[in-house]
Design a protein around this nucleic acid. Sequence first.
DNA 1: CTGTTACTTCACGTGTTTGTGAAGCTTCAT
DNA 2: ATGAAGCTTCACAAACACGTGAAGTAACAG
Lengths: 164, 164
Amino acid sequence: MGVADGRDEEAARHFIEQMAMLFADWGFPRMSARVLITLMAAEERGLTAGELADRLAASPAAISGAVRYLAQVGLVTRESVLGSRSDLYLLPDDAWYTGTATKQALFAQLIAATDKGIGPLGGPGTKAGARMAEMRDFFAFAQQEMAGVLEKWQALRGKPPARS
Amino acid sequence: MGVADGRDEEAARHFIEQMAMLFADWGFPRMSARVLITLMAAEERGLTAGELADRLAASPAAISGAVRYLAQVGLVTRESVLGSRSDLYLLPDDAWYTGTATKQALFAQLIAATDKGIGPLGGPGTKAGARMAEMRDFFAFAQQEMAGVLEKWQALRGKPPARS
DNA sequence: CTGTTACTTCACGTGTTTGTGAAGCTTCAT
DNA sequence: ATGAAGCTTCACAAACACGTGAAGTAACAG
């Protein structure tokens, strides 16, 4: 096959920017999103900060900040290269799992907050209280189900390969 | 029962602001989030724009904008009151279902974009292409599972009540 | 030890998002 | 008709996030 087996740098750039902006809508800082997608779109195993700056035509400062955020939420890993001061940044294998799991924390916050609100609103007997209780239940349900979905995915895709 | 059966306006206010900001993190415009939670926390069946402006100490303009957004994404309904120029804004019964379903559209966009990217990156045979393909599969899987979760919720909670 | 490379941190300029005040419409009351 | 209440729209001001340039710091090379 292989109609499209030469990489089209021009199109790749455009694609990266598109995807990155989609992730930005999803809540990522813009440059972090760009770095994330650039790593994903790289043939290399990982990229250095300098390479990222090059490919994105961005300042080292911007890369630094972007990478810090990504590392914090576990979507990027640092690997120091011997004999060079450049670290290599790479995506963890379970990037999507991690990314989604991170969102789970927000759910937990929401559930906890909702629960605390029922009292001040007059208790579960009031309309307001009842609405809050239902919301809490919905999100608790969703959270639990999501966890199940992630497990299912790992079972389907995450396990089989395991090649060294 | 009834330890907390008087509504504590002070605490309620604080709670509303807290929750609203959580929803804002989730992607809502701030004022829209506040309106949403205020409606949820109200004993009344619905509130007018004026009442919302009062309770939130915000300008009518802000309410107007906030409500427009919420109506657009289906999280609020307008009901005109006879003999008054004020419309009543209320939450649809399936607010959470709707809200979550709305997010599904973003997933679809992401999946489509990812799929389009595989070609420019050199096809599914390349590392980059393979990564994109896996990402597409992950989100497609998640999307499908989420739909199942919503159905399950409706079966559990949505159906039973149906009191007039 | 000195120089160079590569990243990080800091202070600033820019653009976007938010909410306000004022003016304009529309609908009900007189 | 005329008045008035209630939204909505518009133009602007404040707050914030973003990314750049310049200065600082650390690590390897000679």
